[in-house]
Structure formats: C-alpha cells, structure tokens
Computed example of a mutant assay.
Amino acid sequence: MTTPDDIEHMILRVGLGERDAFEALYSATSAKLFGICLRVLKDRTTAEDVLQDIYLRLWRGGAATYTAGKASPITWLATIARNRSIDKLRQIRPTRPLEDAPEVADPALGPADLAEAASERTRIFACLDELDPDKSAAVQGAYLNGDTYADLAARFDVPLNTMRTWLRRSLMRLKDCLSQ
C-alpha cells in the first residue's frame, strides 16, 4: 500500500524530472483524482481530459511547486484536481444568476410537484434576501455558481477565513429561515 510519505517522495522526484516516479505517482493517485474530477464535472470524457491536463502540468514543472510538510501530498493533489475541474466547468458552462435561469419542467413531475418546487424556490430566495447583500451574493457564488472560497474572498476583499465564516454563518441563517 502506498503511504503519504511514498506519494510525497514521488512528487518530489517528479519535480526533478524522473519518469519512473511519474509513472508510480500516476498509478498511485490517478483513480482518486479521476473520482474528484468526475464528481465535479459529471462527465467522464471531460473528467479524463482534466485528469490528463493535471498530470501534464505536474510533469512540466507543477510538481516542483509542492512544498513538503506544508500539506499532505494527496490533499495537495486533490486540491489541484478540484480547482482544475472547477476551472473547466466554468469554461464549458458560463455562469449566470439563478434568477435568469429558465425553469425546465421535469416531465415526471405533476402540477402539484411543480407548484411545490416553485414555492420552495420562492422561499429560498426570500431567505437569501434576508441576508446581507454581500453575504447573499457570496452564498450564491459558492453554492450555485461553483466559485471557490478564494475567488469569493478576493471579490469581496476579505481574508479567506472571513469568507469561510461568512458562508458558514449564512448557511446557518438560511437553515433557520427555511425551517420556520
């Protein structure tokens, strides 16, 4: 079984251009990274393309940016996979506000189900309107548009941990609002 220390050693050797280390790293981590890509992208072909891009970037110098001891090596690789997948998702699916999204009726849903879904959507947006406008926009960006916490922190000019706190507290307020 491959240990985190083994993976860290492989990454460091890939950073030095060792082909056998690259093959070993791919064998040890590609299934996990592919799973992350597939979960984000929900399309096998696109996930395979992103996975290939990840390993190409690692081979072409990305592995040299890894700092041993700063983060676990698999966490570092998983973060790269998640971020590259989100970037790809943004490329193929331009974001637009949910209010502008057309409502598509599921043919399996009846009139009562459609009315309930519309009512639920109205309740969610009413609760979002109760939040501070910046916090509401941050929640929509993170959970509806797929924006990263870092992107949101930069957009709203707040530290990353402050953005995490905003989102956590906003979700708790939304939960309270929706349970009433």
Rank of each mutant, 00 (worst) to 15 (best):
S85N: 02
G110S: 05
T67E: 13
A78I: 03
T79E: 12
D100E: 15
S72L: 11
A101E: 13
L98N: 12
P111M: 07
V104L: 14
I80V: 08
A112Q: 14
I92W: 04
T79K: 15
D106Q: 09
A78W: 06
R82D: 05
L77N: 00
L109T: 00
A78S: 14
A101W: 13
R90K: 15
R93C: 10
D106P: 07
L77D: 06
D100C: 12
T75W: 06
L89S: 00
D106V: 06
K70M: 09
A81F: 08
L89Q: 05
E103I: 15
R96C: 11
T95F: 11
R93V: 09
R82M: 12
W76F: 13
P73V: 01
Y66I: 01
G69P: 04
R84Q: 13
T75Y: 05
R90G: 03
E99P: 00
T75Q: 06
I80P: 03
R82Y: 09
W76I: 04
R82I: 02
V104Q: 08
A78P: 00
E103K: 13
Q91C: 08
T67F: 05
E99N: 10
A64V: 05
Y66A: 02
A81N: 01
I74K: 10
P94V: 04
L109C: 08
P107Q: 09
G69D: 04
Y66Q: 02
T79D: 10
R90Q: 12
T65E: 12
I92A: 01
G69K: 03
A81Q: 01
A112T: 11
A71L: 08
T67H: 04
T95P: 05
L98K: 14
P97E: 14
A108P: 07
I80R: 03
W76P: 01
A108K: 10
P73Y: 00
T79R: 15
A68Y: 12
A68H: 12
R82L: 09
A71Y: 10
G110D: 14
P94H: 05
A112F: 11
P97N: 15
D106M: 02
P102V: 12
T75G: 04
G69A: 06
P107G: 03
P111V: 09
A101L: 14
R96H: 11
T95E: 09
R82A: 06
R93P: 02
A71P: 00
A68Q: 13
V104R: 10
A78V: 01
A81D: 01
L77T: 03
A64I: 01
K88E: 14
R96Y: 09
A68M: 04
D100T: 14
P107T: 12
T75A: 10
G69L: 02
I92K: 07
P94I: 07
A78L: 06
Q91M: 11
L89W: 02
L109R: 10
T65C: 06
P73N: 03
I74D: 05
S72K: 13
P97L: 14
S85R: 02
K70A: 11
R93K: 13
Q91Y: 07
G69N: 03
T95C: 02
R82K: 15
N83I: 05
L109S: 08
R82W: 08
I92N: 11
K70N: 01
E99K: 14
K88L: 06
T67Y: 00
A105Y: 09
L98Q: 13
R96F: 11
R93I: 04
K88F: 02
I92M: 01
T79H: 13
P94E: 03
A68R: 15
L77Y: 07
T75E: 02
